[in-house]
Simulated assay, not measured.
Amino acid sequence: MSQTLDLSGKILIAMPDMGDPRFSRSVIVICAHSDEGAMGLMINQPSQGITLADLTEQLDLDTNDGFRDLPIHTGGPVETERGFVLHSQDYASAISTLPVTEDLALTGTLDILEDIALGQGPVQTLVLLGYCGWGPGQLESEIAQNAWLIGDAPFDLVFGTEDARKWDKALVNENIDILTLSSTAGHA
């Protein structure tokens, strides 16, 4: 079995002619990648009509004065009822937190939402429902078909850029001019 290039901690930037409309202009942080597949979270697709306040109420979580309401994002089309929090590395769940990059971590357990509701969570957070998943070799195949560009996942892109601008900013960060992108892959 060939060793897969580990894309954990990188971002995927959808090509302009992405065939699947669910991923049009999407930016995805790859949280885990191995020969067994990949898991990532879309960071630029806010959900319509649901906020963190709605979620804390639905889960019957106590909040205090330190609570700040946030938009909920669509992390991807897989298990859309399952929640994840992509956050700064200043927080670690007592149950399970996965380091993603030097600056980013992922927690998918209820305790982080309880801590956020009490104003004791990470300084920077993206709360997401659902995730993007790929089986063995599937992501590599999509990259070979020119569906995705690979880039770095800088902290300011994830947390310091408006959702509507993240795709453009991700391209700029990689020194790619949208006008020069081609929808066909070249092979020498």
Rank of each mutant, 00 (worst) to 15 (best):
A92T: 13
D60T: 01
E57N: 12
P71S: 14
R25Q: 15
D90F: 08
Q45G: 01
S34C: 05
E57D: 11
V27H: 13
E81P: 00
L70N: 08
L55I: 11
P77E: 11
D60H: 02
V29E: 13
R68Q: 11
L41R: 10
L70E: 12
D54N: 15
D62W: 01
S24F: 12
V85K: 01
G66Y: 06
G40V: 07
F84S: 05
P71M: 09
H73E: 05
C31G: 12
D54H: 14
S47I: 01
H33Q: 03
L59V: 02
S26L: 13
Q48L: 07
S26Y: 10
G37S: 06
D90G: 08
H73V: 05
A32K: 10
V29P: 09
E79W: 00
Q45N: 09
L59G: 02
T56K: 03
Y91I: 02
T51M: 03
Q45M: 12
L61F: 02
V27C: 15
F84C: 11
H87D: 01
G83Q: 04
P77A: 12
A32I: 01
H33N: 04
T74G: 05
N44H: 10
M39L: 15
G76L: 11
T63A: 05
D69Y: 00
H73K: 09
V85N: 00
T56Q: 02
S47A: 12
P46T: 03
P77Y: 03
V78G: 12
H87S: 04
Q89P: 00
T56A: 01
R25W: 00
D62Q: 12
D62I: 05
V27T: 13
G83R: 13
G37H: 08
G40S: 11
M39S: 11
N44G: 08
I30K: 13
R82E: 05
E81W: 00
I43P: 10
G75M: 01
E36W: 03
C31D: 08
M39Q: 14
F67D: 03
G76H: 11
G83W: 03
A32G: 07
D35T: 13
A92V: 12
D60C: 01
E57W: 01
N64G: 14
G83P: 06
M42L: 10
C31F: 06
L61I: 02
I72H: 00
L86C: 09
Q45E: 13
T63V: 14
R82H: 10
H33G: 02
D60V: 00
G49I: 05
T51P: 06
N44K: 11
R68T: 08
S47P: 00
N64S: 14
D60S: 14
E36L: 09
D69V: 00
R82Y: 04
G40T: 11
I30W: 07
V85D: 01
F67W: 04
V85C: 14
G75S: 07
M42E: 06
V27R: 15
L59P: 02
